[in-house]
Design a binder for these strands. Structure first.
Lengths: 223, 223
DNA sequence: AAACCATTGACCGCAGTGGTCAGTGGGGGT
DNA sequence: ACCCCCACTGACCACTGCGGTCAATGGTTT
């Protein structure tokens, strides 16, 4: 990366990075077009290659930045120790959706990198950094597992998988709803609609507890 | 579609169609390459365009065939009336995975058509046929809804969504496992490993019933 | 005035696209 | 033996879009 880029006004940097994140995130490494990037960023082709010498260098730089950014945002989470399984999921979701709102391109980009089958374009150092971070996170999450409050008539591993699928589905829905409402955000007070989503989510987590924890019968004994 | 193609030996037809299904399914309409298709099918480029006059005609023909094929395979399901919600899901899954095993390319292709945002390449008649079938299926499924056995302490709509996400996740897992085992199938007796998956699935459905139906407490009262 | 340097966009060679068509060769009719 | 038919081939076409380059530009500093 060229020194000049680092000294650019922050908003211009962001415009360029976001355009690149979005393009890679949508089309993957190979099908991402530098032409579309520069058009979206509002700069000329020459400038992009002046800042980053090649498509590959740009890509690796983006991965590196995205890793730093996500670690900075989610790192604290892994240190904290919320004891309840679902409350911990709630924390994760909160951070994730917060990050999604202000940095959606980066998350989609990281998702694409995560499922990318061909990693030959990742520089070894970057690939190592990526693997280290992912493994570290996995280990820390595993250490926090505590399923003692779960109902005992269902295999806990299966239960965790189920919960995972449900959360995934719910979050996908939530993001879709948020994107549908995103034009409203531009003008109206964000706090309100944001709160609405969270009320929904709290209720949703409460349902999960009622279903998967042991001290609730199928019949309504609370509401 | 050329008359000559219809008079081809069935296996040659299938080889060509499957190659095309796979290519479109993997890369979408625009990025699908007729070159890769003919290579995978083991025919020459000229032949493909002799059978189907253009990429677009081929695509529409594939959609049309896929619709007929899936309707033939799943049509009976919508008429039948398995009263239990989960057992009905089980029927669906059984048909789906059966179809998947012998016709995986078609399912992936249909999935791609289903999520395709740009439908400008679908001929109007084919688009209409597609929409009619999808809407018809939706209506019939909705008519069969009967949630009276579900626990009453959770919103039934939310519950149905959760079940949908779980099933989706489980099936994705199952397909992945099946693909990992697919080399085994080639030689060993298929019946056995196939049965293994179904035992798993039955158990999985039993768990869902235990969790989402009302007359089970959180503690083990059956196993 | 001169040197500097961030920025531009026309341009390059290339890879891969959907589609074409003169040519080929085996089978059947005469 | 002949020829005609026609399914089939693959070299070829015009074209698009790619990653990447570089002479030219123009504002700023010396």
């Amino acid at each position: 990366m060229n020194r000049v880029f680092a000294e650019l006004p922050e908003d211009k940097q962001k415009r360029i990075l976001n355009a690149a994140y979005a393009e890679f995130g949508m089309h993957g490494y190979k099908n991402a077009s530098t032409n579309r990037m520069v058009q979206a960023a509002g700069i000329s082709k020459g400038t992009l290659f002046y800042y980053f010498n090649s498509k590959n260098e740009l890509f690796n730089d983006l991965v590196d930045r995205a890793l730093d950014s996500t670690v900075a945002h989610f790192g604290a989470l892994l240190a904290a120790n919320e004891p309840d399984y679902f409350d911990r999921l709630l924390c994760i979701a909160k951070l994730k959706l917060e990050y999604q709102r202000e940095n959606g391109e980066v998350l989609r980009f990281m998702g694409m990198v995560f499922v990318m089958k061909d990693r030959s374009h990742l520089r070894p150092e970057v690939r190592k950094k990526y693997d280290d971070i992912v493994n570290d996170a996995r280990k820390k999450v595993a250490r926090q597992e505590n399923l003692s409050a779960f109902r005992t008539d269902v295999d806990p591993v299966m239960m965790r998988r189920m919960v995972g699928w449900i959360i995934e589905g719910y979050e996908k829905d939530m993001v879709a709803r948020m994107e549908a409402d995103s034009d409203v955000w531009q003008s109206a007070d964000i706090g309100d609609s944001w709160q609405k989503y969270w009320d929904d989510y709290y209720q949703f987590i409460a349902v999960l507890k009622r279903i998967f924890y042991k001290d609730n019968t199928g019949e309504a004994d609370e509401k």
